[in-house]
């Protein structure tokens, strides 16, 4: 554990140092401007402390972000509109819906692509093309369509946008996984006169599981990004995406950065959770620990 933590901490330390240096450099402009307006001059030693505690810094230093994050997480009731726990939960809920939808869609498409040659030739190219369209451009359209269809809830278009990003890694991995059994394995089942259904349930599906779990980590991160993007143009007032947009529009960089870090922490937790599910599943499938 110690050997693992050391390099990570070292990199983290370097990032923090660079961050502080950048904060001093970027925020100093404002301090010099203030001094010029007041007709005074400031020495560098006087500038540094002033770059650390501005209300609207160009680049908030780490401790300010940490403080804002702490305030957002622990400083209010979790039901408050200012609570990052509240906004984080909204984003988490959207992510889970998009993730689930993406898994169902990805697996269903993969199964039909492996089963039917027609699907392989017709659907696969479109699935690839779908990922070349910038989601930022597509998101407002999905919202408009949802509106046209009379769907009032913001959750639905958000989940759709999230699923749009997360189904793809699942699809690609599952196609590969379902096709992973070699000819000998297929021949063996043929000698048992196994039906296509039996081949699927007893060979193809279990053989695809390692591919499936590998894709989940990518898919859950994509689902989170999709949800946040879905929260940006909705005029949404809830969710980490909305929080970021508010911070940016109202010139409150601290709010924006705190939301950004909350999203990063959420992503980390989601990936750890998927990793735990994967480990449990692998253990049940007899993989050496």
């Amino acid at each position: 554990m110690k050997e693992k933590a050391l390099p990570v901490l070292a990199v983290l330390g370097i990032i923090v140092v660079i961050w502080y240096a950048a904060a001093v450099w970027m925020n100093a402009t404002w301090v010099y401007d203030q001094a010029e307006r007041a007709g005074t001059t400031v020495s560098f030693a006087e500038v540094v402390p002033q770059t650390m505690a501005q209300d609207r810094p160009l680049l908030p230093p780490p401790h300010q972000v940490a403080a804002e994050l702490w305030k957002g997480v622990a400083g209010q009731a979790v039901t408050s509109k200012r609570s990052l726990v509240y906004h984080g939960f909204v984003t988490f809920r959207g992510t889970m819906m998009g993730f689930a939808l993406g898994i169902v869609l990805g697996v269903a498409l993969a199964v039909s692509i492996v089963r039917f040659r027609v699907m392989d030739m017709s659907v696969m190219p479109w699935a690839i093309i779908s990922q070349t369209i910038p989601i930022v451009a597509l998101a407002p359209m999905i919202l408009t369509v949802a509106n046209q269809l009379g769907i009032d809830s913001r959750e639905v278009p958000k989940a759709v946008i999230s699923a749009y990003l997360s189904f793809f890694p699942v699809l690609v991995s599952m196609v590969k996984g379902l096709r992973s059994p070699d000819q000998m394995q297929l021949d063996l089942l043929k000698t048992y006169n196994a039906s296509e259904g039996e081949t699927f349930w007893k060979l193809r599906l279990p053989a695809s599981m390692p591919y499936f779990f590998a894709s989940l980590k990518v898919a859950v991160a994509a689902a989170l990004i999709g949800t946040i993007v879905g929260e940006l143009p909705t005029g949404a007032i809830e969710g980490l995406g909305a929080r970021m947009l508010i911070g940016s529009q109202f010139g409150e960089p601290l709010i924006m950065w705190a939301a950004l870090f909350a999203a990063a922490i959420l992503a980390g937790l989601l990936i750890v959770a998927v990793g735990i599910v994967e480990r449990v599943a692998r253990k049940r499938m007899g993989v050496p620990a």
Binding site: M184, Q185, D187, L188, L189, T191, Y192, N193, A194, E198, K202, L203, P206, A207, M209, M285, G286, V287
Partner: peptide, 26 residues
């Protein structure tokens, strides 16, 4: 007939007993 291939081709996700059960299940 029963067929034995050059490689054992056991399913890694099944125990030895589970592998032998495979044709019996089918």
């Amino acid at each position: 007939y029963g067929y034995v291939f050059q490689a054992a081709g056991l399913y890694p996700w099944r125990t030895i007993a589970g592998n032998i059960a495979l044709p019996l299940e089918i």
